[in-house]
């Protein structure tokens, strides 16, 4: 379980993940906020539907993909949390083909 080393004094931000309210700190990314509230399952793979969560936290692996405010394939580790965001797990095919 991940915890903050000290309850930070930064203002709180709240958003939802799969309909559930999540409390975050300003300065959090969607991924850090979810990890720090105990979430591990961010998406299912398009091939085997297996569960995945953040792996690199630096924008490289694309394992943290979620749907944010209706837009799919967003990198949760690169996107700062905003009040009232609606975040859902990424299911199924991913993004623009690259070739």
């Amino acid at each position: 379980m991940f915890k903050r080393i000290k309850a930070t004094e930064t203002p709180r931000v709240s958003f939802s993940f799969e309909g559930q309210p999540i409390e975050a700190s300003t300065g959090d990314t969607v991924a850090s906020a979810l990890m720090l509230s105990g979430q591990t399952h961010f998406r299912n793979t398009p091939i085997s539907q297996s569960e995945r969560g953040p792996f690199c936290m630096m924008g490289v692996c694309f394992e943290c993909l979620v749907e944010i405010d209706g837009i799919p394939n967003r990198q949760a580790c690169m996107i700062p949390v905003r009040e009232g965001m609606v975040v859902r797990r990424q299911k199924g095919a991913i993004g623009v083909e690259t070739e």
Partner: peptide
């Protein structure tokens, strides 16, 4: 290595540096 909960060491260091988060196990 694809299971949720498995990360790079760098990922946990980022969680600590940027967000003050650390795991207990």
């Amino acid at each position: 290595w694809t299971l949720p909960g498995v990360t790079t060491a760098g990922a946990l260091q980022i969680l600590l540096k940027a967000h003050g988060g650390v795991g207990d196990d």
